[in-house]
């Protein structure tokens, strides 16, 4: 079986894969990095979103071999070095942007990509950008509020 090397969250790693192994499997089963989730088989749900060479991609819909030599960022690499939550993660906690937590890794990675492209998105731009990330729990309200807050835009705390 081929071996690929990647920089995952800044650390060089090697992992054996089959040709048919998708990146999400290489991360989850090959490297034991189970933060990246699989919620569907049609590339719709977005639970598996990671960044490959700085771009958000669905890691279930890219062969691991295509990520050979790439810089890969996953949910496991998002917190500050001391383990504390980064601004976006903290905003998700503050604004109740997650419930079961299953979509959350992909949601965070997509939101991070959005803010990199568009540091002050409008609410409509946020909703549009999250088209490929399904959340079944939150109704997206807390997620939208969190991303607004993380981009320094005020939002009413959802709780009454």
């Amino acid at each position: 079986m081929p071996t690929i090397t990647m920089n995952v969250n800044g650390a060089p790693v090697s992992v054996e894969v089959e040709n048919r192994t998708v990146l999400s499997s290489a991360l989850r089963e090959g490297l034991g990095m189970t933060g990246t989730h699989i919620g569907c088989d049609t590339s719709q749900c977005g639970a598996c979103v990671v960044h490959v060479n700085g771009k958000a991609v669905k890691s279930c819909t890219i062969f691991a071999l295509e990520a050979d030599g790439a810089d890969v960022e996953t949910i496991e690499g998002q917190a500050h070095a001391d383990g504390s939550l980064n601004v976006l993660q903290q905003a998700f906690q503050d604004h109740h942007g997650l419930q079961c937590g299953f979509c959350t890794p992909g949601m965070i990675m997509s939101a991070a990509a959005l803010l990199k492209e568009n540091p002050k998105p409008t609410e409509a731009e946020i909703r549009d950008y999250l088209e490929g990330n399904i959340c079944r729990c939150t109704g997206y309200q807390g997620i939208v509020d969190a991303i607004m807050a993380a981009s320094g835009q005020s939002t009413a705390i959802a709780a009454e």
């Binding site: 933060g35 949910i75 496991e76 998002q78 937590g101 299953f102």
Partner: peptide, 11 residues
């Protein structure tokens, strides 16, 4: 939330 936000949930 902290474990879910950091990829440390255990499903």
């Amino acid at each position: 939330d902290v474990r879910f936000l950091t990829g440390r949930g255990k499903y």
